[in-house]
Amino acid sequence: MAGFLLWLLLLVFCWPLALLALVLYPIVWLLLLPLRLVGITVSAVFAFLGALLMLPARMLRGRPV
C-alpha cells in the first residue's frame, strides 16, 4: 500500500518518471527472476547438505547409551 501511495505521489510530481517506472518494473522483474530461482535452488542445496551432514549426529543423539 505504501509503495502504491509513493508511486501516486511520484505521478503527481513527475509523471514521466512515474510512467517510466511503471513500464520498467515488469522488465526488471523478469530479468531478475532467474537470479531469484538460482538463489532458491542454492539455499535448498545447502539446507539438504546441512541435513545430510547432521544426520549421523541426530541418529547418535536419539539412541540411548
Rank of each mutant, 00 (worst) to 15 (best):
V28W: 05
R63F: 07
V42T: 12
F4D: 15
V42R: 12
M1Q: 06
L11K: 07
P26A: 12
P64N: 03
I27E: 04
A44G: 10
A51D: 04
I27W: 07
W15E: 04
L37E: 10
F48N: 10
P16I: 08
L37I: 07
A51C: 07
L9N: 09
A44R: 12
L10Q: 03
P16D: 09
L8D: 09
I27Q: 08
A51T: 02
I27K: 06
A47S: 12
A21V: 13
L20I: 11
L32P: 01
V28H: 05
A57H: 00
A44M: 11
L5A: 07
L33A: 15
M59A: 15
R58M: 01
L60T: 11
A21I: 05
L55K: 00
G62Q: 09
G62I: 03
A44T: 07
P34K: 05
L10D: 02
M54K: 00
L20T: 11
L17E: 14
I27D: 01
I27C: 08
L6Y: 04
F48V: 13
L49T: 05
P16S: 08
L19P: 01
A44F: 08
W7S: 02
L17Q: 13
F13T: 10
F4W: 11
L37G: 06
R36D: 09
V45K: 02
A21E: 04
W29K: 12
L30E: 15
L8W: 06
M54T: 00
L17P: 00
L55D: 00
G50D: 06
L20K: 03
V38I: 11
L8P: 00
L5S: 05
G50V: 04
L35H: 06
G39H: 11
V23E: 07
R63K: 07
L30A: 15
L37F: 08
L17S: 13
G3D: 10
F4V: 15
P26K: 10
R58G: 01
V45N: 01
P64R: 07
V42K: 11
L24M: 14
Y25P: 00
I40A: 13
L11Y: 11
L30K: 15
L55Q: 02
W7D: 01
G3A: 13
A2D: 08
P56T: 02
L52K: 00
I27Y: 04
F4N: 12
L32S: 10
L8T: 12
L52V: 01
L55G: 00
A44E: 12
L6R: 08
T41Q: 14
L32Y: 09
P56V: 01
L6E: 13
T41G: 15
V65G: 09
L22N: 02
P56I: 01
V28Y: 04
V23W: 09
P56K: 02
P56C: 03
L52D: 00
F46C: 15
L6W: 04
L9S: 13
V65D: 09
F13L: 11
L19T: 07
V45S: 01
F48T: 13
R61L: 15
L55E: 00
L53H: 03
M1R: 06
V28R: 05
L30C: 15
P26L: 14
M1V: 06
R61M: 10
A51Q: 05
